[in-house]
Design a protein around this nucleic acid. Sequence first.
RNA 1: GCCGAGAUGGCCCAGCCCGGUAAGGCGCGAGCCUGGAAAGCUCGUGGCGGCAACGCCUCGGGAGUUCAAAUCUCCCUCUCGGCGCCA
Length: 420
Amino acid sequence: MLDVNVIRQDPEMVRKMLRNRNYTDEKLNMFMNADAEWRMLTEKGNALRKQRNDVSQMISKLKGDEKTKKIEEMRLVGDDIKNIDVRLAELDAIRDECVLNIPNIPHHTVPVGKDSGDNITVSEHGKRRKFPFRPKEHFEIAEQLDIIDFERGVKIAGSGFYVLKGDGARLERALINYMLDMHQDQGYREVFTPAVINRSAVIGTGQYPNLKDDMYWLERDDMWLNPTAEVPVTNLHQDEIFDKDDLPISYTAYLPSFRREAGKHSDTRGIVRVHEFNKVEMVKFVHPDGSFDVLEKLRNDAEDVIRGLELPYRVLLLCTGDMSFAASKCYDLELYAPGRDGWLEASSCSCFTDFQARRARIKFRPEPHLKSEFVHTLNGSGLALPRTMVAILENYQNEDGTVDIPKVLRPYMRNQKVMG
RNA sequence: GCCGAGAUGGCCCAGCCCGGUAAGGCGCGAGCCUGGAAAGCUCGUGGCGGCAACGCCUCGGGAGUUCAAAUCUCCCUCUCGGCGCCA
């Protein structure tokens, strides 16, 4: 969430920002009104409390009629305070609700734009292979090799779930290990967290309330299925204060991710958009100075994974209208898939400035005697597994239906080709 | 699931039975002292509102009783221990 002082001081800047992100200014206006009344009533309530505190002190020393009279007076003051408190609680709830629904302020280098059409292609890498035959789509290849079983995924879980088999399952495992090992070499510490998380975690990173319909919710326990490892990993340090020397902190995590994808019907064939997928994630906690430089580094770390796999890809800088709620700046990495002749978003690398840290109360102390400040958080996928799998199957396919295994994965797979 | 114990400022911990300004220690900082340091002493070290003076809030969360709640009552959450169950 934004610093309420920033909103108070410059509501017009926030209004402009909301417009650039395709948000209405409804929550902003509501906040300003509620906040003004809240401040007025807070002062009023404080004055009454002072009166009550002072008189209460005296009462213990008084006796007889005098005492009875003062007690009677304070009873009325108490009622006034109670009434004010009720209204204050209402206003506070309104303010919270508003602030939790106002997105982060984009960095000045982020292009203003309406939707994905206004994103900027920063760079394109790798050679696209020339195929002497018609390249197949990944689900054709996978079905032929019997390495992905769509029917049985549906049978045991439902539409949008699939089963990996044989070399498919082994390729998945190889990819996870390859990615984790690479991130470890890049200086990230591996963590393995719960995939079921509580409400305070999904609020902390900003998925709740905005994306609550996109997550699986376990009603009976008020728990949520992890939508991205960003959530559990960032919230590891909820309510903590780091020493200056603790920063930066870099984690990498492999974790299954769950998305309801309610109302989305595109890309139903294959594994491009599914309800459960594996992902290796990078998360960083850094000093506020230079956090956008760290974003470049993070993006490069994710690109290393793709370069290692020798897949063609491009880097997009998202515009204001396409960026997610909590991000201040975001790059998407897209893999080229020749079977479908299209791009697949396999990684999203974002800097959240202090937006998540404020929600999750993650701070650091610049010097032992100074006040604590919010850290900056970043994260990026490195990478989402199913789409990486799609890109590998389609880019490395042979005319006979087999698939070569990228060189970097061979030590993990112990074979050169996916045979089934 | 049952029983018990606990949650107090950055950290540790007292206060709770018996309601009346949250004590003390550690760490850190500033000052005094010193040739310099250590020790010692003084002050500071949570949040909100306010330009400020200042005021209010803060004892896991919420509700209640009371002129007044860390303290009494009720509900909830989490942690630890024991029992039960169990891959």
